[in-house]
């Protein structure tokens, strides 16, 4: 028990040191070049200082990892043991103890719960990748970020989607350089205006082929307004920050099923119309048509 507490203390200590050193790094970065860097070669000095600080942080991080690895996780929820009898204490000055005890018990319980959650999340989103490739000559696959992607990547994605479906024609315009707005004509059924933010779909409007192509006005037809609504739902459903290109691809696959918007009857009621609208919903997996009310 004593050993455990000792280890816990040293782990907490190393976390404290790490935090203070990371803080120093940020301080130094925010201050930038200072007078004490001298006049000449001040940039070099500054870079050296930053390097030194970062090395310290790296070492501290290693210490934290080591000390955390030594800790034994508590086997289960804590047992209050004999201390529960404190509630039956009659002496005035000891009665307060029980309240404090309960509070701290709640607190540890919460910590347990949160750390379990955090542990799960961190385990599934491991950042080990970045460490492993440090200093190795193996070329790392460039991680696609969501917001800041070179225009060529988006361009490639759009052309690959264009090739995927023969009855889809895509025209792209770039009002703001990295964020294209594309018009997707789905056969002779409808046209969608899709605005991208990096590799993510930001906005979708569905209109009739004869209607204008701006992003802001919605269609004058009820059926396309409903489809727009459903596209927004699908856009959120397919959204995946880790694999943005896959999200766009799945969305386009789903969207392509609207080619039968007017011709396919509802899968459930096998009718074309329900409240004067054709089946405006497409199942997200099976892509089968359903009425809003039948899904």
């Amino acid at each position: 028990m004593d050993r455990d507490i000792e280890q816990l203390n040293s782990a907490l200590n190393s976390v404290k040191i790490l935090r203070s050193n990371v803080r120093r790094v940020f301080e130094s970065v925010s201050n930038g070049l200072r007078a004490d860097h001298g006049e000449e070669i001040k940039e070099n000095r500054y870079i050296l200082e930053l390097q030194e600080l970062l090395t310290t942080v790296n070492n501290n991080l290693r210490d934290v990892e080591n000390s955390v690895a030594n800790l034994t996780p508590p086997p289960g929820a804590f047992n209050l043991g004999n201390t529960t009898y404190l509630s039956q204490e009659t002496t005035q000055d000891r009665q307060q103890l029980y309240g404090q005890l309960v509070n701290s018990y709640k607190w540890t319980d919460k910590i347990r719960e949160y750390s379990a959650l955090a542990g799960n999340i961190l385990a599934s989103n491991s950042f080990n990748k970045t460490y492993k490739t440090f200093g190795t000559t193996k070329r790392r696959k460039t991680q696609t970020s969501n917001h800041n992607v070179p225009p060529e990547i988006i361009e490639n994605l759009i052309t690959s989607i264009d090739r995927l479906f023969s009855d889809v024609t895509i025209t792209a315009s770039r009002p703001f350089v990295p964020n294209p707005v594309i018009q997707v004509a789905l056969g002779r059924v409808l046209r969608a205006v899709i605005a991208f933010k990096g590799l993510m779909i930001e906005w979708v409007v569905v209109k009739a082929l004869s209607e204008g192509s701006d992003v802001w006005t919605e269609s004058r037809y009820k059926v396309f307004r409903k489809v727009t609504e459903n596209c927004h739902a699908a856009m959120c459903h397919f959204h995946s920050p880790l694999m943005p290109d896959l999200a766009v691809r799945s969305f386009m696959h789903w969207f392509h099923s609207y080619i039968t918007l007017f011709s396919a009857p509802c899968k459930r009621c096998s009718k074309h119309l329900h409240s004067n609208l054709p089946p405006t919903w497409r199942d997200l997996r099976s892509l089968e048509p359903y009425h809003e009310e039948c899904k």
Binding site: A208, N276, P278
Partner: peptide, 16 residues
Amino acid sequence: KPCVVPAMCWDLIMEF
């Protein structure tokens, strides 16, 4: 009004 190709919406109009 939303549809422009008769073959696509004939069944739908007939039902209506």
